[in-house]
């Protein structure tokens, strides 16, 4: 990325436009002849995956080195936008592989019939995981992150948090995956008592943001004592910034997990290459990249183990994760409960 000058980038974009026009003019054969030399694997993913700091660039390079193919990323917003895009494109999607759905979306995704079964890959998840259509590539625990220099004693449960006068900022479950994770966390831990927990938490929640970025930004600006993020968030500050002031509060109820998965589209023209890519995604090389770019736990711990610093992270006593079908069924009612309790 760094090697390209602005002019270079600009020229490449221009060429892309030119190609499009040629295609549209019915001269597709010229373009396709040039492209037929090496097969292209098209990967649909969320856009922070493909950013300069995401895992995309390194994974593209790593896989291209062995596959003799050209990896092309198409990015679409976040995980939820990804599924919307898959549905919109339907059977004639150009993508071969979809990377970045999470287990709250997989039931819905499988129900579209657009995904093909994939071979399971070995994983080191703390809970059993099986899904015919998807393989996990990383995962994390949702947690409330705080600044140790400002919060002396962190709450150890939702009840303690509710009883404290700590101010937290959370994400909206209707527009973000961490927000949805939190709602399912409370639902999974408290079942029918979830509305009561939300009612008790109402005075601690200063605001609800549309996405993770806004919430995390408000937290680092000091507007809130805690933010809903991941237990692995402090690892970034520790490893990349040598800042050990951030920590995640361990809750006795256990922590709900987010498992990010990848799958293969049934309409793929390159099914073998797609399988090869999914296998590569859980290889040591790719997993090492994911840890320090997505700042999540690897789906399969690489041979060299976790980077130094990860051992300082809190280890939840209990891992919570609904099955895809349960999550799908619980989603709408849990959001409604959340909404009703916080609207009072």
């Amino acid at each position: 990325m760094h090697g390209f000058s602005i002019a270079d980038q600009f020229r490449r974009n221009l060429e892309k436009d030119m190609n499009t026009k040629l295609l549209a003019a019915g001269l597709a054969c010229i373009a396709s002849q040039a492209a037929a030399e090496t097969p292209t694997l098209t990967v649909l993913t969320y856009d922070s995956f493909t950013s300069e700091w995401g895992p995309g660039p390194a994974i593209e390079k790593g896989f291209e080195a062995s596959c003799g193919c050209d990896v092309k990323f198409i990015s679409a917003g976040d995980g939820a936008a990804l599924l919307a895009r898959v549905k919109l494109e339907g059977k004639d999607s150009k993508a071969d592989v979809v990377v970045g759905l999470d287990t709250n979306l997989t039931a819905d995704a499988s129900a579209t019939g657009l995904f093909a079964p994939v071979a399971a890959q070995p994983n080191s998840l703390p809970v059993p995981f099986s899904d015919a259509n998807f393989i996990p590539f990383d995962w994390g625990y949702f947690a409330f992150v705080y600044d140790k220099t400002k919060v002396a004693v962190a709450p150890t449960s939702f009840a303690e948090l509710a009883a404290s006068d700590l101010k937290v900022v959370i994400e909206d479950p209707r527009s973000s995956t961490p927000g949805l994770g939190l709602v399912l966390w409370v639902k999974d831990a408290y079942g029918d008592k979830a509305p009561q927990i939300w009612a008790d938490l109402a005075d601690n929640i200063i605001t609800v943001t549309p996405g993770w970025s806004e919430a995390y930004g408000m937290f680092t600006e000091g507007q809130a004592d805690m933010v809903l993020s991941y237990t692995t968030s402090p690892a970034y500050h520790l490893i990349a910034e040598q800042d050990d002031t951030k920590a995640a509060a361990a809750f006795t109820e256990g922590h709900y997990m987010q498992v990010e998965v990848a799958g293969k589209l049934a309409s793929s023209q390159q099914p073998a290459l797609a399988d090869q890519f999914l296998a590569y995604l859980t290889s040591d090389a790719a997993q090492s990249v994911l840890i320090t770019t997505n700042w999540m736990y690897p789906a399969k711990t690489p041979a060299e183990g976790l980077p130094k610093g990860f051992e300082t992270l809190v280890q939840p006593a209990k891992s919570l994760l609904m099955t895809a079908a349960d999550a799908e069924a619980a989603r709408a009612p849990a959001i409604a409960e959340w909404q009703a309790a916080l609207s009072k």
């Binding site: 974009n13 493909t50 950013s51 700091w53 917003g77």
Partner: peptide
């Protein structure tokens, strides 16, 4: 959005997303 074609606001978003 395709690959590499980020506009400035998207670029800011990416930076926040990467902490």
């Amino acid at each position: 959005a395709g690959d590499g074609g980020a506009t400035l606001p998207l670029f800011v978003q990416h930076l926040i997303g990467a902490y």
